[in-house]
Simulated scan of single mutants.
Amino acid sequence: MKYITKIFSIVSVLLFVVSCQDFNTDLDVKNLENPNDFILTSDPVALEATAGTLLQNWFMSVHSTSAPGAAFATMADSFYMFLG
């Protein structure tokens, strides 16, 4: 059992060292989610589109069935039943 843990730890360290040979640190990436402030202040259509998209994304994330909102509402409802 001692040998298995030693061999496993050595193999793990070797795999970790070999896998990190091509470590890319290029962080110069264009942020596509960040709107341009100059365009938003000069073009009312772009401002309305960005605001509408932000509001729709927020609404869909809050009221989605994959979000925990429905579960929290059910828990709050059942907890209030015990208090009232």
Rank of each mutant, 00 (worst) to 15 (best):
residue 32 L to G: 09
residue 47 L to V: 02
residue 38 F to T: 09
residue 46 A to S: 10
residue 20 C to P: 10
residue 52 G to R: 00
residue 2 K to N: 03
residue 3 Y to P: 01
residue 1 M to L: 10
residue 66 S to I: 10
residue 59 F to T: 14
residue 9 S to E: 04
residue 5 T to I: 14
residue 22 D to G: 11
residue 55 L to Y: 06
residue 15 L to I: 05
residue 61 S to L: 05
residue 24 N to S: 13
residue 80 Y to M: 15
residue 80 Y to A: 14
residue 29 V to G: 01
residue 40 L to R: 02
residue 41 T to D: 09
residue 59 F to G: 08
residue 14 L to F: 05
residue 17 V to G: 10
residue 7 I to H: 01
residue 74 T to N: 13
residue 60 M to S: 01
residue 12 S to W: 00
residue 42 S to T: 14
residue 56 Q to L: 14
residue 79 F to Y: 04
residue 38 F to I: 12
residue 39 I to Y: 06
residue 54 L to M: 11
residue 9 S to W: 02
residue 39 I to N: 13
residue 54 L to H: 08
residue 46 A to Q: 02
residue 22 D to K: 10
residue 37 D to S: 11
residue 47 L to Q: 04
residue 5 T to Y: 09
residue 79 F to C: 07
residue 10 I to A: 15
residue 14 L to Q: 02
residue 66 S to R: 08
residue 72 F to C: 12
residue 30 K to E: 12
residue 47 L to G: 03
residue 71 A to L: 11
residue 42 S to L: 06
residue 56 Q to R: 15
residue 16 F to M: 10
residue 51 A to D: 15
residue 10 I to W: 00
residue 83 L to F: 01
residue 39 I to A: 14
residue 29 V to R: 11
residue 75 M to L: 12
residue 65 T to P: 08
residue 61 S to I: 01
residue 75 M to R: 12
residue 65 T to G: 08
residue 75 M to N: 15
residue 53 T to G: 12
residue 68 P to V: 05
residue 84 G to P: 07
residue 14 L to E: 11
residue 27 L to Y: 04
residue 11 V to Q: 04
residue 18 V to W: 04
residue 38 F to V: 07
residue 77 D to M: 05
residue 32 L to C: 03
residue 70 A to I: 08
residue 1 M to E: 05
residue 11 V to G: 06
residue 30 K to A: 13
residue 7 I to P: 03
residue 56 Q to A: 15
residue 64 S to T: 05
residue 24 N to A: 11
residue 30 K to R: 07
residue 20 C to H: 13
residue 25 T to D: 07
residue 6 K to Y: 06
residue 31 N to T: 09
residue 27 L to N: 03
residue 46 A to C: 03
residue 29 V to Q: 12
residue 49 A to I: 01
residue 9 S to T: 04
residue 73 A to C: 06
residue 33 E to C: 02
residue 41 T to W: 11
residue 82 F to V: 03
residue 22 D to A: 12
residue 56 Q to K: 15
residue 6 K to E: 08
residue 34 N to R: 12
residue 64 S to W: 04
residue 74 T to H: 06
residue 28 D to N: 13
residue 63 H to D: 10
residue 16 F to P: 09
residue 13 V to F: 03
residue 57 N to R: 09
residue 60 M to L: 07
residue 78 S to K: 08
residue 23 F to L: 13
residue 49 A to N: 06
residue 81 M to G: 07
residue 62 V to N: 11
residue 14 L to Y: 01
residue 55 L to Q: 15
